[in-house]
Amino acid sequence: MKLEVDSLARCFGTTRALDGISLSVESARVLTLIGPSGGGKSTLLRVLGGLETPDSGTVMVNGAALATTAAELQAYRRSNGFLFQQFNLFPHLTALRNISLPLEVVHGHDPATAQTLAEAALSRFGLLEHAHKLPAQLSGGQQQRVGIARAVARKPAILFLDEPTSALDPEMTAEVLELIQELAEQGQDIILSTHEMGFARAVADQVAFIAAGRVEELASPADLFAHPRSEVCRRFLSKVMRY
């Protein structure tokens, strides 16, 4: 994927969540956003995913400018996938229905095809036995995996993951991260924000360190983790890597 972000700004009240962010990625399979909480990772991800409109600045994704009208944004969201920290699934629908419903009403598949596709998505990640369970009957890790299955069931151009494992315990975190790695290896374009530095180092092609609404550093993981150039990044890494 190719990404071109130029002086992107977004304010919430007096808080500058994005303070003129610029970012240029020529080609990357997996772009990882790291940095302190409240630094703007989520907001950037939400803008890139078409869930938030910026106050100013431009974004080019794979050579096309990001949509601005509601209808275009909806179409853009339909072509991508987005996963939040938690509560992604619709609690009143079974795992299977969570996947098949969007395939039906958003992507226009007939019910039988939607069901087949949904089952295929679940079985791809070893979740078929949970197909008829409600989200409340699944563990947090299983819920996130179903969420990812839903997002990739319609072959998204880019998969956006906003701290997908922040609400999970270490064991569940591992099962979700494994799945994401698997997807990346199969060629899925992914942009994710995470606090799992080990994972970022292992899977990402490019890592962007974001703090105070700006991109402080953008480099390959080997480079960034070994030789952080900026002072903030160095301090952040030394803190999070200490334990």
């Binding site: 995913g49 869930l51 909806q74 969201r77 339909r78 987005f82 939040f84 509560f87 969007p102 958003v106």
Partner: peptide, 17 residues
């Protein structure tokens, strides 16, 4: 919860949907 609205938008539902 707000996350439900967001998730619904993220899977591509229209406002009516």
């Amino acid at each position: 919860p707000k996350t439900q609205w967001e998730s619904a938008r993220a899977v591509g539902f229209s406002p009516y949907q």
